[in-house]
Write a protein that binds this DNA or RNA. Structure first.
Length: 498
RNA sequence: GCCGCUAUGGUGUAAGUGGUUAACACGCAGGCCUCUCAAGCCUGAGAGUGCGGGUUCAAGCCCCGCUAGCGGCACCA
């Protein structure tokens, strides 16, 4: 691995000097809860749960143009589905504007910031020009050098003004990131950034620092896209006379083409994964492994309890993580298989309800039967959607016949029609009707007629389910039940020629 | 352009303070089991650790340079 990690790390270092872990997830409601945000939220949640800390939800909606209440709802919906419950909040930054303004004025008073009367459009044009010429451009600090009298005059004249931070002209700003180690930046490479816009709204740097301090955040766990901005925030903490919290930046999540995850990579919102039939449990597991590892690559299927137990900032990697959809599917299948039918019950029920296949009796007098079917299906399922597709023949008499299966299993052998009719007859008077007796009857019939049992088995499989791929045939027969099985065998036989 | 970060099979991770044949998982190929598929079990292909130097008896781990990728550089967050 590359450079040295935070040296001599000890588990207890994670919580040194803080009596109580307080972490937050602070999305800006300019979009739904996407994979990257969900991963960040999960890391914070795991950390809080591991140390018995407090997980806070804060909505960074200071960009009025781009924020919307619907997006806040969407983010909350995603977090709820993922099971990431928060202990405080949601706090809305839009309701705390007075605080940011007061703090910004404090910095002006203490000499750490100054009023800037420059025209934003003019500055943007200059920046634009410099960028086009591949030149570096930095705000030249025009207003930093204004005399007190001049400042007073412009204020009196009602000039619109922003507040800029007075970045030290020399020296370096450094901090220790729990993941990336020592980060050091020369102050001359940081421009006098805006704290408060002329419309009175704070910029990100101001609101995030003020809130994290005000909310006594102990650890800031967020995406590495904020790493480069952290020195500015450290500068702010110092100017306020506050001790910065522990920083831990997590690598970004990229698509298979190593580009930043975007719409063209398909599903980006976590609710899209819910709709595809992913289990929250599996999603937490998969997301946790995006940029974090417990250190043992052979143990990847982890229940949430284990994730909480194993999670540590030290296990966060520095290289960007690549989102591997195939692996997510595999992981979902593993969780599906590992969970009991009873655990799966509410999820499967929700899927069936969406398809209009749910019946109240499945939760009442036929619950036992229903759970048995879930157990049969879960072994082969990759997503919850599979319970409605491959489960349809058990929950409904209206299911599709796969033409290929029909051709292969029903129409290839002309003896099939007679065999199915005979099988139906024998099943009809079979008592009891269970795994052993149905198998004895079917194999007996095959032997009598001199055909391989497989011929009857595959024919029955397709006749009963419309498919060529199902659980073991006798499980299927018993699950479908004598009455329906007999009827389907006869109905299908009727469509076949001798 | 400036600043910062990263670099181990196709993908995700291992390989405590440098020390055998670079391991595990996903995926892939083949086989076993078998009523299909999945699961399970067995076997196999696939990297010599981005590139180039250096230090050392010994480098994936340390140092330097380069390249590439990613991120940041807004009165966005």
């Amino acid at each position: 691995m590359g450079g040295p990690r935070v040296s001599t790390w000890e588990p207890q270092d994670e919580v040194t000097a803080v009596s109580h872990v307080r972490v937050r997830f602070a999305p800006s409601p300019t979009g739904y809860l996407h994979i990257g945000g969900a991963r960040t939220a999960l890391f914070n949640w795991l950390f809080a749960r591991k140390y018995g800390g407090t997980f806070i939800l804060r909505i960074e909606d200071t960009d009025v143009e781009r924020s919307s209440p619907e997006m806040i709802e969407g983010i909350i919906e995603g977090l709820r589905w993922l099971g990431l419950d928060w202990d405080e909040g949601p706090y809305l930054q839009s309701e705390r504007l007075a605080l940011y303004r007061a703090r910004a004025e404090e910095l002006v008073a203490s000499g750490w910031a100054y009023y800037c009367f420059c025209d934003p459009e003019e500055l943007a044009a200059k920046r634009q020009r410099a960028l086009a010429e591949k030149r570096t451009w930095k705000y030249e600090g025009t207003c930093r050098r204004l005399s007190a009298g001049e400042v007073a005059r412009r204020i009196a004249a009602g000039h619109p003004r922003a507040i800029r931070f007075k970045v030290p002209e020399e020296g370096v700003t450094r901090f220790t990131d729990r993941v990336y180690g020592e980060i050091e930046v020369r102050n001359e490479s940081i421009e006098d950034f805006v704290l408060l816009r002329s419309d009175g709204y704070p910029t990100y740097h101001l609101s995030v620092v003020v809130d994290d301090a005000d909310m006594r955040i102990s650890h800031i766990i967020r995406g590495a896209d904020h790493l480069s901005n952290t020195p500015k925030q450290v500068l702010l903490y110092r100017a306020f006379g506050w001790e910065p919290p522990v920083f831990a930046h997590a690598p970004l999540i990229l698509g298979p083409d190593r580009q930043r995850l975007s719409k063209r990579h398909g599903a980006m919102s976590v609710t899209a994964y819910r709709d595809m039939g992913f289990l929250p449990e599996a999603m937490r597991n998969f997301l946790a492994l995006l940029g974090w590892s417990p250190g043992d690559p052979s143990r990847e299927i982890l229940r949430t309890r284990e994730l909480i137990e194993l999670f540590s900032l030290e296990g966060i990697s520095r290289a960007n993580a690549i989102f591997n959809f195939e692996k997510a599917l595999w992981m979902n299948a593993e969780h599906l298989r590992a969970m009991s039918a009873a655990e799966l019950f509410p999820f499967v029920r929700a899927e069936l309800e969406k398809e209009g296949l749910w019946r109240e009796e499945y939760g009442q007098e036929r619950r036992e039967w229903f759970l048995r079917v879930v157990d049969l299906l879960k072994v082969r399922a990759r997503t919850l959607r599979d319970f409605v597709t491959s489960g349809r023949p058990y929950f409904s008499d209206d299911f599709p016949m796969d033409p290929e299966a029909v051709q292969k299993n029903l129409r290839t052998n002309s003896a099939v029609k007679g065999l199915l009719l005979e099988l139906a007859d024998r099943f009809e008077r079979l008592e009891p009707f269970d795994l052993q007796t149905t198998e004895r009857v079917l194999r007996g019939l095959a032997e009598e007629r001199g055909v391989k049992a497989g011929v009857i088995i595959n024919a029955a499989r397709t006749a009963l389910t419309g498919s060529a791929v199902t659980p073991g045939i006798f499980d299927v027969i018993v699950a479908i039940g004598r009455e329906r099985a007999v009827r389907r065998l006869r109905q299908v036989a009727a469509t076949l020629s001798e």
